[in-house]
Amino acid sequence: MSTRSTGSRRGFLIALVVALLAALVVLAVTLGGGHDPGTAQPPPAQPVAVVPEPQASSEDAVAALPKSEPVSIDIPKIDAHSSLVPLGLNPDNTVEVPPVTTPLQAGWYTYAPTPGEVGPAVVLGHVDGNHQKGIFFRLKEMAAGDRVSIARKDGTTAVFEVTKVHQVPKKDFEREGVYDDTAGPELRLITCGGVFDRSARNYVDNIVVYARLVQA
């Protein structure tokens, strides 16, 4: 995942997060998610434009930060503000998720680089849950140039600029390259999206926002 990661570790983490993304929706439905198939129709799917990634010059490069745990995330564009809880692994090796009973809570994946380090840091959040909108309900509205700020435990704030937004079928998630190594500090924001498949009790897509560090 980071420049220190091996190919086998990246493959392992990809498999874990695919399981997480499925778990986010299963938990939301089981514990009373925002789209109860028996009582209400889910909102219509909103297509996400594939935004070309701008080419960064060497002058745009920002030095990577040392490791430091993130404490909060702020995304003005979509009015998303949350503390960040650490997400590790459950005993069965599935990834922990933010509590579905508090869908406005976001979390960061502790086996990825911390935001600002070289490599793709990962923040996950619910699109909905407990009959409420989730922290990333509007994530699909993000576009290239939007800013994401993450406050860190060492007192610094890592500011990222969105480079692209993809709506990815879950069946193609592994081929998306979300967790591939990167030359500099980057960020991935992930949630569920697209059509809600009532028979599978699951969303068919993921929304993935890609961003790079522009200020530290």
Rank of each mutant, 00 (worst) to 15 (best):
L84V: 02
V17D: 13
I150K: 04
P76L: 12
G129F: 02
V29D: 05
E59A: 15
A15M: 08
G155W: 05
L139V: 09
V127I: 13
V51Y: 11
A121C: 10
L65K: 10
H81S: 12
T182A: 10
P120G: 05
V148C: 08
M142P: 05
G11Q: 15
G107W: 01
G88F: 07
V168Y: 06
G107S: 02
P37Y: 08
D181W: 06
I14H: 01
V18F: 02
G7T: 03
E174W: 05
A151S: 13
S83M: 10
H35F: 13
D74N: 15
G134H: 10
L124V: 15
E186M: 04
I207N: 11
P44S: 09
L189Y: 09
P86Q: 05
L20A: 14
K140N: 11
A28S: 15
V18E: 14
A49D: 04
T157G: 03
A143L: 10
V123I: 15
A40W: 03
W108P: 11
V18N: 12
D146F: 07
M1E: 11
L24M: 13
F173P: 01
A80F: 02
L13C: 06
A61K: 13
A45M: 08
V50W: 08
V209E: 07
A61N: 01
Q167H: 04
A19V: 03
G107I: 04
T191W: 09
P52N: 06
A19I: 00
I207V: 15
V204P: 00
D205H: 12
K170P: 01
E53V: 10
C192H: 06
L187A: 09
T3L: 14
G38Y: 12
E161Q: 15
G134Y: 11
L24A: 04
E53G: 02
A63Y: 02
A19R: 15
V204Y: 03
L84M: 05
T182K: 12
Q167W: 01
H166N: 12
H131D: 11
Y203L: 06
W108I: 07
K77P: 01
T156M: 12
P185N: 00
D154P: 12
A22G: 06
K140F: 13
A121Q: 07
E186R: 12
A63H: 09
V97G: 01
D74P: 00
Y111T: 09
L84R: 08
L20V: 00
A45S: 15
A23D: 13
V122C: 12
R10I: 14
Y210S: 11
I207H: 06
V29H: 00
D60T: 05
G116H: 07
A158E: 04
G11S: 14
Y210C: 00
L24G: 08
P169I: 01
L189H: 08
L31M: 05
F160D: 00
V25D: 15
V127Q: 05
E69F: 09
S72F: 05
R138T: 01
S57A: 14
T156R: 15
P169R: 06
V168M: 08
Y203W: 02
L27I: 00
V25H: 01
V29M: 01
A22E: 09
G7Y: 06
L13T: 06
A61I: 10
